[in-house]
């Protein structure tokens, strides 16, 4: 510090005052400023903008109508049939997909954690679905389940489960279930990966201690594995739920929300409202509702998992 001030005295270096600030505790904030600014621009601004357009009329094809409309979109949402269907479908789609993915992911993680010969190769194979972009996975499954050429239909018919090829996505009774299975296939490696990391972090000694104490496999699972993975599970579920609620791409590829809205979810509805109706205001309101649903979900979920931990 002394040396800095000496230099500034003798030569009045242009950066000397900066050098002096760098010795104070404000320097930290100054260094953080650019990233905070960036964060604000990238995160806060779009979010706020989303809120703003949700209380405005913003229909690209009717520029004349633009203006403040307050809660109008939210009120009309209450009587919007498709909104309620989408809400219900979103809940089913997310809950079912997360549960199946978590179960499959856990089984995969436990299997991979055994360090048996070949697990390394198997580990890569198991992750493959997750590497596929949603759109690619969607088209692939659309083909696998295709009512004319689909391999899966062929297998099921040969095994005698089906009498003829079934159009899985054309029947409102099977469309949502079929899309959930595709999503589960695509998403379970996410859980497998996180669970595997979590499992690796559980000290072997705990299981040994439990074995000496006389705990069986189920007790070990319940009292060691699950609690030790709790943070991982919480984080994984929240991340997955957020991404499932927010990404319409798989459904867009597989069914486009059909048949007859039977696979319509909020994200897809908002997407279609924005980019087919060009009704950005209403789409914004839908997104805000999704935002709050996710916020409430995350808060409750985190609180619940903490309560049970204490």
């Amino acid at each position: 510090m002394r040396r800095v001030s000496m230099t500034s005295n003798s030569r009045r270096h242009p950066f000397s005052s900066l050098g002096e600030i760098s010795e104070t505790r404000y320097w930290v904030y100054l260094l953080l400023l650019p990233s905070l600014l960036l964060l604000f621009l990238v995160v806060a601004y779009p979010t706020i903008y989303g809120f703003v357009i949700s209380v405005r009329e913003m229909r690209l094809t009717r520029p004349g109508l633009n203006g403040w409309v307050g809660m109008k979109h939210y009120i009309s949402m209450m009587s919007d049939r498709v909104f309620w269907i989408s809400l219900k479908n979103t809940a089913i789609w997310v809950a079912a997909a997360v549960m199946i993915e978590m179960t499959l992911g856990f089984i995969a993680a436990v299997a991979l954690n055994r360090n048996l010969p070949g697990t390394r190769l198997f580990g890569v194979l198991i992750l493959l679905p997750y590497f596929l972009p949603n759109v690619v996975a969607g088209h692939m499954w659309a083909l696998l389940l295709d009512p004319r050429l689909g391999v899966i239909n062929d297998i099921l018919v040969r095994l005698g489960f089906l009498s003829s090829y079934k159009a899985w996505f054309a029947d409102p009774n099977t469309a949502l279930a079929a899309t959930i299975l595709v999503e589960a296939w695509h998403g379970f490696p996410f859980f497998a990966l996180l669970f595997l990391a979590g499992l690796k972090g559980i000290p072997e000694d705990l299981y040994k201690a439990a074995a000496v104490d006389g705990a069986g496999s189920f007790t070990k699972f319940k009292l060691i594995t699950v609690p030790m993975l709790k943070t991982v599970i919480t984080a994984a579920v929240i991340l997955r739920v957020i991404s499932l609620v927010n990404s319409p791409d798989l459904l867009l590829v597989l069914t486009g929300g059909g048949p007859g809205n039977s696979t319509q979810v909020l994200s897809l509805y908002a997407f279609q409202t924005a980019y087919r109706d060009f009704n950005f205001g209403y789409a914004g309101a839908l997104s805000v509702v999704m935002f709050f649903i996710l916020m409430v979900f995350a808060t409750i979920y985190i609180r619940l998992s903490r309560i049970t931990k204490e």
């Binding site: 000694d205 040994k208 074995a211 000496v212 104490d213 705990a215 609690p227």
Partner: peptide, 30 residues
């Protein structure tokens, strides 16, 4: 015999205490 039937008790280097249980339950778990 499995460990639980050998009537032994073990203390580990990492202590291996069950993180979610109270000290009381930890001690009494066996």
């Amino acid at each position: 015999l499995p460990p639980k039937d050998r009537n032994i008790a073990m203390v580990f280097q990492s202590y291996a205490l069950y993180p979610t249980m109270s000290v009381e339950r930890n001690i009494g778990f066996g």
